[in-house]
Each structure stands twice: as structure tokens, then as C-alpha cells.
Amino acid sequence: MTLDSANQLKKVWQRWQWILWMIVIAIIYIWAIGGIKFSGLQDSAGSVSKSILSGLVSPEWSYVYDGSGEDLISLIFQTLAIAFLGTFISAIISVPFAFWAARSIKERFFLRSGSGKVVLTLIRTFPEIVLAIMFIKAVGPGSYAGVLAVSIHSIGMLGKLFSEAIENMDRGAEEAINSVGGNAAQVFMLATLPIITPEFVSYTLYRFEIAVRSAAILGMVGAGGIGTPMIFAIQTRNWPRVGIILLGIIIMVLVIDTISEQMRKRLV
């Protein structure tokens, strides 16, 4: 009897639970829409959008290269340099973090790996812009602060990806070296490292793609790269220059993404 009625209850629940979900979703959306004060369009919105579009259509070509070192090409290369160095440093620092956070079968309560994962999450959530501002206080405004911000912030994601690669790797080679009497160093050098290096490199390339995007915006707070002239151009309403910088960023990101994707396809 009780089993029967319990079953009946379950059936009713399954039949009608969507109504509950609908109500929850409706409440969330009413809350969300009510909270945003729609400022509406500014009076100048139309003319601003029009001048942005005309700036995009007729960009300031003379800004592309003028030999001063403050032109588009030099700053794009500076942005790439920030992303490249930052990712390189971060990849090296991430390796010990990854071994710290990787769960192993031998571990009993996951204290080591658990604490490592928490640290990586904390690093990942710390806003990159705040890191950049902190480094600007330490080393002054410029691309060096950008390099440091990228290299610390990327540890959060690279460490996580690396540790997952370690968790999922094939243990056969390690056991083989172990079984013929290899010591820990030999196991690491001859089995662990050769197996996971391609995956590490692949993830590092992927992270480099993301770092290029963040290096492009770190300049907005003064950490070097193309972001600095971008925010100046927007603030001074210099739309032809905004147009050419946007074009430059789009081409830079497309080229880097394509190269990196090709290299990653060959690796894995």
C-alpha cells in the first residue's frame, strides 16, 4: 500500500515538476529584469554609433606604421610579446602546481590534491585586472606589469588543465620502469615526462590564445600593449583610430588562433 502510494507520488512529481521549474525560472528572470536600470539610449547614441561605424569603414591607415614605436604594428607585437612571455613563465610555474593538485590513487583523503585544487581555484577567480594594477604599483606602468599579471593569472587555468592531464594519463610506462627497478627520478624522466609533455604543450598553446586576448585589454589599466592607445582613442572619440586598432586586434587574434590550432592538431 505505502509502496504503491509512494510510486503514485513519484509519478505525480515527475508529471508536474516542470511547473515548479517554470516558477523558479520566472522568479529569477523577474528579479533579474527588475534589477537592471535600463538607462535607455543616450541622445548621442545614434550619432556615436554612426561615427563608430564610419570610423570602422574608413580607419586611420597612417596609424598602422609610422616608425615611432607607438604605432599599431609595434604595439601589436608588444601585445604578442606580453602574451608569449606571460604564458611561457606561467607554463613553467604551473607544472609543480599541477603535480600538487593531481589526485592519485595512493592518496587516502585527498588532502594534498584537494588543497592544490582550492589554491588553483583562488588564483583563477582573482581578477586579472586587479593583478595587473597590483603589479603596476610594484614595477610601474608598462608591459612588464602585463607580463607578470598574465603569468600569475594563467597558473589558475593551466595548473587545472595540467593536473587533469596527469590524472588521466596512462600509467603503464611508469609501472614498467618501476618493475625493472627504476628509481623515482628515472620514472619521472623516462615515463611521466615524455607522456604528458605533448598534452602540456597543447594546453599551453590554447592558453596562449586566451592570453593574447587578455594582453590586448590589460593596456586599458596601463599594463602595456595595444589596450592603452585603444582606451585613449575611445575616450577622445577618435573613431577612425578605434577602427584601425579593432581591425588590428581582429587580424592578430585570427592569425594566432589559426597557427595555434594547426600546431595543436599536429601535437595530439
Partner: peptide, 28 residues
């Protein structure tokens, strides 16, 4: 879609702040 994905979020925000004015509309 590829072109839309190349633009970093803060960069888009800077442009939309210029259009919509300071406030959460630009963020949305």
C-alpha cells in the same frame, strides 16, 4: 561568428559604454 569571438569582452564594453553611457545597460 569567428569575427565576433575575436573581440575581448572589456574592449566591447568600452565601446558600448561610449554608445549607451555609463551603467549596466552597456554591460548587458
Amino acid at each position: 561568428l569567428d569575427l565576433v569571438r575575436t573581440l575581448p569582452d572589456l574592449l566591447l564594453a568600452a565601446i558600448f559604454v561610449a554608445i549607451f553611457g555609463i551603467g549596466s545597460t552597456a554591460g548587458v
